[in-house]
């Protein structure tokens, strides 16, 4: 954001000082735990158990990474599945959400409240695990299908309301001018509205994408062991939980696990699953640019 130099007074400087201070503290609070994770993923298990987390790897070791990478096929497959799901899901979901959000904010659209209620209501009442599971597997036959993950995450009522809200900030005159030019509603949406909503679309796209990236729950329900490649976060979730589960419950069976470095392995998996986000986020940030929305009309 470019700021004019005029009008800076003392309060501005104070606010500025406070902002930098708070921003730095916040960032540190978030980055230090991450460094702890990173450092411990490169530590030996014994050291972690002895001294807890340190900011610098204690007793440097890449054992847990080599353990994960021992079967690179799984990891690469997980990345590919996750990336594809994220790309396709975000594109389709964003398109539908944007379209619906725009239509629902049109003050002249008579059914907008009824439709909004219909959509919103679904966020309040959910059928619960079993009915949803039975419908997904037995009515839609989505067991072992990536669609069982792709579809449920496409959108949610909250994103539609958010989109509707963003779309409100586009002056109604734009729609009117489009109508005068003889454009249909869909054409108005794609040609006039979409270009003005870049930050909103980036925001909502980001939310959808995060939903796909972080997904493990539907994977754990619908992708059985017949599916070879499961999404990344699900792999992570498994690694983190399975060791505990093993120790916890199998009261009676002989389960031999050889040398699994429990803690460092969890950390390494977390690093591998989160790392790409750090690379991806700045790319999205580019679209958070002020002024795109309204500049066009007011001139």
């Amino acid at each position: 954001m470019k700021k004019n130099k005029i009008g800076l007074d003392r309060t501005d400087f104070i606010i500025r000082g406070v902002t930098y201070a708070i921003g730095s503290i916040g960032a540190l609070a978030c980055v230090i735990p991450f460094l702890l994770i990173l450092a411990s993923s490169f530590s030996s298990e014994d050291a972690i158990r002895r001294t807890g987390f340190t900011i610098w790897p204690a007793d440097f070791s890449t054992y847990s990474y080599s353990l994960i990478l021992r079967t690179p096929k799984q990891l690469v497959g997980a990345y590919i599945v996750t990336i594809l799901l994220t790309l396709i899901g975000t594109a389709v979901g964003l398109f539908i959400v944007a379209m619906t959000g725009y239509a629902l904010q049109r003050a002249d659209f008579p059914f907008r409240n009824a439709i909004m209620f219909f959509i919103y209501f679904s966020s309040l009442f959910s059928a619960g695990l079993v009915p949803f599971y039975i419908v997904m597997t037995q009515a839609y036959h989505l067991r072992d299908s990536y669609l069982a993950i792709l579809i449920p995450l496409l959108m949610n009522p909250w994103l539609i309301v958010l989109m509707k809200n963003f779309a409100k900030s586009v002056p109604h005159e734009i729609t009117e001018s489009g109508k005068i030019d003889g454009a249909g509603d869909f054409a108005i949406f794609t040609r006039l509205i979409v270009p003005m909503l870049t930050p909103a679309l980036a925001t909502i796209g980001l939310f959808i994408a995060i939903g796909y990236w972080n997904e493990w729950y539907y994977s754990s329900l619908f992708l059985t062991s017949n599916v070879e490649y499961r999404p990344l976060q699900y792999q992570l979730y498994r690694v983190i939980n399975q060791i505990a589960a093993l120790r916890n419950t199998v009261a009676g069976s002989v389960v031999t696990i050889t040398n699994i470095p429990a803690e460092t392995l969890k950390m390494a998996t977390a690093v591998l699953a989160t790392g790409p986000i750090i690379l991806f986020y700045p790319f999205v940030q580019k679209y958070f640019v002020a002024g795109v929305t309204v500049g066009a009309v007011k001139g």
Binding site: L129, R143, S220, S225, N226, R238, Q242
Partner: peptide, 22 residues
């Protein structure tokens, strides 16, 4: 063919699979 119920959340998945047999 072995159908694995992985240790993660195995109770849920074990029972769900039995509850919705096809």
């Amino acid at each position: 063919n072995i159908r694995w119920i992985e240790w993660t959340d195995y109770m849920t998945n074990y029972n769900l699979t039995l509850a919705s047999q096809d």
